[in-house]
Simulated scan of single mutants.
Amino acid sequence: MHPINCPCGSGITFQLCCQPYHLKTKTAPTAEALMRSRYSAFVVADADYLFETTHSSKRKNHSKSGYLSSAKNTKWLKLEIVFSAFDVVEFKAYYLNKKFQTEVLHEKSNFRLEYGQWYYVDGVYYL
């Protein structure tokens, strides 16, 4: 089996990029690294990782089954980081809609660092 490139667009293999975060053998060192690993988790349908990296104050608005459904029902194409700062990442995630047309999810996400672990808090969508 050939190693696959990481869905996050880093240019390196999934095994060396986002997978160690998903397997909890490494912790995402920055908000951008967490954002990239969460995008990859949507691509590979890792609902546990998505739920666990959502800030505890926001988990009531999300569920593992909701993340899994979203991940499995979306064909993600690529991730583009527009802007990245300490605790904010603006990105564009490209996907196919039900008519097989490319659409873009453009979001400015907020992250929080607690006890050495980054968490997704919330985001603002652009139309």
Rank of each mutant, 00 (worst) to 15 (best):
M1G: 14
M1N: 04
M1Q: 02
H2P: 15
P3C: 04
I4C: 07
P7I: 04
C8E: 09
S10D: 08
S10H: 03
S10K: 02
G11S: 10
G11M: 11
G11V: 12
T13E: 12
F14S: 01
Q15L: 15
C17I: 03
C18D: 08
Q19M: 07
H22Y: 07
L23W: 07
K24D: 13
K26S: 13
K26V: 03
P29A: 02
E32V: 01
E32N: 08
E32K: 02
A33Q: 14
A33H: 10
L34S: 06
M35S: 07
S37I: 03
S37D: 01
S37C: 03
Y39Q: 01
A41Q: 05
A41I: 00
V44M: 04
A45K: 06
A45F: 00
A45C: 11
D46H: 10
D46P: 05
D46V: 02
A47Q: 05
Y49N: 07
Y49F: 15
L50C: 07
L50K: 09
L50T: 04
L50M: 09
F51I: 07
F51H: 12
F51P: 11
E52T: 10
T53D: 00
T53P: 05
T54C: 14
K58I: 10
K58G: 00
R59E: 12
R59L: 10
H62L: 03
S63H: 02
K64Y: 11
K64N: 04
K64D: 02
K64Q: 15
K64W: 06
S65Q: 15
S65T: 14
S65Y: 05
S65M: 05
G66V: 01
G66E: 10
L68S: 12
L68P: 02
A71K: 08
A71V: 01
A71N: 06
K72D: 04
N73V: 06
T74W: 11
T74F: 09
T74S: 12
K75V: 14
L77P: 06
L77Q: 11
L77I: 15
E80S: 04
S84H: 05
S84G: 03
A85I: 07
A85N: 11
A85S: 15
F86I: 14
D87K: 13
V88Q: 15
F91D: 01
F91I: 00
K92I: 00
A93R: 03
Y94M: 02
L96I: 04
L96G: 03
N97L: 09
N97K: 03
K98T: 13
K98H: 11
F100C: 08
F100P: 00
F100N: 15
Q101T: 02
Q101S: 11
Q101P: 01
E103R: 13
V104G: 09
V104P: 06
V104M: 13
L105K: 10
E107N: 05
K108H: 06
S109F: 11
N110P: 02
N110M: 11
F111T: 01
F111C: 05
R112V: 14
E114F: 09
E114L: 14
E114K: 14
Y115T: 13
G116M: 08
Q117G: 01
W118Q: 00
Y119E: 08
Y119T: 10
Y119D: 08
V121E: 10
D122L: 09
G123K: 08
G123C: 06
V124F: 10
V124L: 14
Y125E: 14
Y125A: 13
Y125T: 15
